[in-house]
Design a protein around this nucleic acid. Structure first.
Length: 835
RNA sequence: GGGCGCAUAGCUCAGCGGAAGAGCACUCGCCUUACAAGCGAGAAGCCGGUGGUUCGAACCCACCUGCGCCCACCA
């Protein structure tokens, strides 16, 4: 075969076709006669990406590549790799994506029609994501692919719900809940994030000496009490049963004292509404205040707002301010910086509603989750704090109810007469209570025969937090003990409070243990300016300076998948990494270089074949060959140690240093006169090599290149596979490099004395190259003489040993001992060259 | 207000107790039979600041400063 220029498209397509036709990443559960200890299982819990945008970005490519480095290493260590993948294609993120893509609103469509639309669109998008992951070379077992809306996941989620209900960890209660008026659904604490904005702080006169400050005057009709600090002298004269009249709405509310009121803020007098924020909820509960819900589920003011009913929250705010002004009740207003809780998916401020919801008891079990957080191995370790802090700050139980359509239904029917819930039987799951009949014909509580299916669906995290169980078969016939707990959870840091936390919750409440031994937490790929990349930005921005330059498909098309993957090696695990196209180009250089070394091998191996019987044992090889093997042995150890600590970055650094500065820049240059057939292209006879020395170089080149392919296989799986196929597959009889074993250093490669001597030879060789440069000579131009001078006996002893290999490495006709003017870099030795 | 992380060459990042590193960019020289998307040589850093611990600190400790993230506040 005549190797042309490196073409990553052809190389990657061929490697992919090979992997797919042999299905090399398929999980091998082993047979009954194989002891598990002989081949341990390495199982990985991978994040199912939300199907919530047309494209993923290079940051996703980074955080999925990093675990793949580790997985590929473990596979080469001979472990049985279980590496599943799925797509999280239901729930709010997906619904929002479909709503935007098709310009529809879920509330305006018949449920079945909307769900069908979601299913079709998410299948299309998931196929695109799958293709991307395949192109990126993630060594996933696609036969294990799941989608969180499929029957297996629905069964698992519903089974968990039934079990948690039976064991008392799930309860149904009508409590104040976080509510998104935009998406018209309840939310969990984890779905809410902070948004800093400027708003106005209005001061409103309730009565003589009773002036409150609020940013939410539209909640005036929801006001149920006023509060001041007990030590605030301004309000010291108030009686314990003081009451105030709410302006415009003309009803009385109590005026109460509370230590937590900040006398410095506003007027020191605050109004509590049901509900403006979570503080209101606390006081309402504690002090048994009245309930006046004024914001409706659609974000408009309700009947209690009187003439303002029907207005949106912001319309209502202006209108009420105007009315207060007209009534002489507005004392003033000032702009104020404010942080509000918004729904993370739509950035609309959350409101509160009261309606019956299913809650998982996370607060009362917080200590158990905290203990599991401590038990888990975290990489990097500081990520543990993010979970601990979240657990410590839990204020609400996990509301798993969503008033949406495209999700896993609750396997529950309610008795139409007494409202008692009836749950599905585990063997019947999955069920859809809106179309399936309940498992009983009469209500166990009241005997009624009328039931209504629960119309709500589960929080999508309720399903995705069960990925370990979805994969280990728990709800489908029994947990596979080889897969539980799993070896490693991999994910990025921003979903510690959601996916990771909820997974710990499920595993602890269902089984009383951790779902995995180790959590590997990656950082983010950021833009050149260090800004967060977002899937949604990719969809709406095109052009040369647009976000589409972060689309991994385009990057891989231009530079290759190996190049994109190699970018992901550049940072430590858990740290963010700025993206730059230049760095991808650098990654491509490796693939090109490895390719070209292959070409060198082809051009120089002559008649060599590893099946020949003239093997030269390492101990009998040329000093320079022993040197490179010694370095290689050290590199193998370094990379192995690094990988054992999950440190792909150090492993890659070690391999890279070896490949570039020892192997390519020095070793290959040093053997050029020795590895060939003994004549220059112009026919000049080199009188060298002798056959032993040439075979020594050829064996060494052959073996060392193979080791390098192994060391780089986890990082650049395509080009390494290609070179393996070209040179080694026929001799090793293993179909893919990625099914071969991780390189081991042959003890016979250790050569401490040769190593030291040739390290110094290399230093002197560098000096001769600098001299060449001064004479305007390239490295392949032959020198007639290499002049060496030793200052003392020690230097002389070294020269005696390396003079001849140095002559060959320097491509000089002869070595001459004599006066030499230039420092060689080695103490006591000077050097000169003659063209 | 609290927590976590980061701060090293122009840029992106390693190093985390024993003489400051890599890649990119830059300067100079080479179209060299593996590779010009290449090779060789070179320049480039008070390792954010101030104190401490130590024989020795980029590295450990304390306090600052700046940036990022999370939490609390949200009247």
């Amino acid at each position: 075969m005549e190797p042309g220029d490196y073409d990553h498209r052809a190389v990657e397509a061929a490697a992919r076709a090979l992997w797919e036709s042999y299905d090399i990443y398929r999980y091998d559960p082993g047979g009954p006669d194989e002891p598990a200890a002989a081949r341990p299982t390495f199982s990985v819990d991978t994040p199912p990406p939300y199907v919530s945008a047309a494209h993923l970005h290079v940051g996703h490519a980074m955080s999925y590549s990093q675990p793949d480095f580790i997985v590929r290493y473990r596979r080469m260590r001979g472990e049985r790799v279980f590496y599943p993948i799925g797509f999280d294609d239901n729930g709010l993120p997906t619904e929002r994506y479909v709503e935007q893509a098709y310009g529809v609103r879920a509330v305006d469509l018949p449920r079945a029609e909307f769900v069908a639309l979601c299913l079709a669109e998410t299948q299309r998008t998931a196929a695109r994501y799958e293709d991307l992951w395949r192109r990126l070379g993630l060594s996933l077992d696609w036969s294990l692919r799941y989608s969180t809306i499929d029957a297996r996941c629905q069964r698992t989620a519903q089974a968990s719900f039934v079990r948690l209900h039976e064991t008392g960890y799930v309860r149904r209660a009508a409590e104040p809940i976080l509510w998104c008026p935009e998406d018209r659904t309840s939310l969990a604490q984890a779905d809410v994030e902070d948004l800093e904005r400027t708003s106005r702080l209005y001061t409103i006169r309730f009565g003589e000496g009773l002036v409150i400050a609020t940013t939410r005057p539209e909640l005036l009709p929801a006001c149920v009490a006023l509060y001041h600090h007990p030590a605030d002298s301004r309000y010291a004269g108030l009686r314990a049963d003081a009451r105030a009249l709410v302006p415009l709405f003309d009803y009385e509310v109590p005026v109460l004292a509370d230590e937590d009121v900040d006398p410095e803020y506003g007027t020191g007098l605050m109004m509590v509404c049901t509900f403006g924020d979570s503080e209101d909820v606390l006081r309402w509960r504690r002090d048994h205040l009245a309930l006046r819900l004024v914001v409706e589920p659609d974000g408009r003011l309700g009947e209690l707002a009187g003439e303002f009913a029907g207005l949106t929250v912001s319309q209502g705010r202006s209108a009420i301010v105007k009315a207060l002004e007209g009534a002489g009740r507005l004392a003033g207003s000032v702009p104020v910086r404010q942080v509000v809780g918004v729904h993370e998916r739509c950035q609309i401020p959350v409101e509160f509603q009261i309606r019956p919801q299913w809650f998982v008891a996370v607060r009362e079990n917080a200590d158990r989750f905290r203990a599991r957080a401590a038990e888990l191995e975290w990489i990097p370790p500081f990520m543990r704090r993010r979970l601990e802090d979240w657990i410590d700050g839990l204020k609400w139980d996990w509301n798993i109810t969503r008033q949406r359509r495209y999700g896993v239904p609750f396997p529950v029917w309610f008795c139409s007469s007494c409202d008692a819930p009836v749950l599905a039987r585990p063997q019947d799951l999955p069920v859809d209570p809106l179309t399936d009949a309940p498992p009983v014909t009469a209500c166990p509580s009241c005997g009624s025969a009328e039931f209504t299916g629960d119309p709500d669906v589960m929080d999508t995290w309720m399903t995705s937090s069960l990925t370990p169980q979805i994969n280990d078969g728990w709800a489908l016939g029994g947990t596979d003990p080889a897969l539980a707990p799993m070896s490693m959870r991999v994910q990025a840091f921003e979903i510690i409070r959601t996916w990771l936390f909820y997974s710990v919750v499920q595993s602890e409440l269902l089984f009383g243990r951790l779902p995995w031994r180790t959590a590997l937490i990656s950082g983010w790929g950021l833009s050149e300016q260090g800004k967060k990349l977002s899937k949604r930005d990719l969809d709406r921005s095109t052009g040369p300076d647009g976000y589409n330059r972060y689309v991994p498909d385009d990057v891989m098309g231009k530079y290759g998948a190996d190049a994109l993957r190699l970018w992901a090696t550049r940072g430590r695990i858990g740290t963010d990494l700025k993206y730059n196209e230049k760095d991808i180009r650098t990654g491509r250089k490796f693939a090109v270089k490895l390719w070209n070394v292959g070409r060198f091998l082809t051009l120089n191996r002559g008649e060599f074949s590893p099946s020949r019987t003239d093997f030269v044992p390492p101990g009998e090889r040329d000093i320079v060959d022993r040197w490179v093997l010694s370095h290689l042995a050290e590199t193998v150890v370094e990379a192995t140690v690094a990988f054992e600590g999950h440190d792909y970055h150090q492993a890659h650094q070690a391999a890279s240093r070896m490949f570039w500065s020892i192997y390519c820049d020095r070793y290959i240059e040093m053997i050029k006169d020795r590895v060939g057939d003994g004549a220059l292209p112009d026919g000049t006879d080199l009188e060298y090599p002798n056959r032993e020395s040439r075979d020594s170089a050829r064996w060494t080149l052959w073996e060392s290149y193979r080791v390098l392919l192994g060391l780089f296989a986890p990082f650049a799986p395509f080009v390494t596979e290609h070179m393996y196929q070209r040179f080694y597959r026929d001799h090793e009889n293993v179909v893919s490099l990625h099914l071969t074993r991780w390189p081991a250093a042959d003890p016979a490669w250790a050569a401490p004395a040769e190593r030291v001597a040739v390290d110094q030879l290399a230093v002197i060789l560098d000096a001769t190259r600098a001299l060449r440069s001064g004479l305007h000579l390239g490295n392949s131009a032959r020198l007639s003489q290499l002049i060496l001078q030793a200052r003392d006996a020690q230097a002389e002893a070294l020269l005696a040993r390396i003079a001849e290999p140095l002559r060959i490495a320097a491509r000089a006709g002869a070595v001459v001992r004599g006066p030499a003017a230039h420092p060689s870099g080695v103490d006591g030795i000077t050097v000169g060259v003659v063209a």
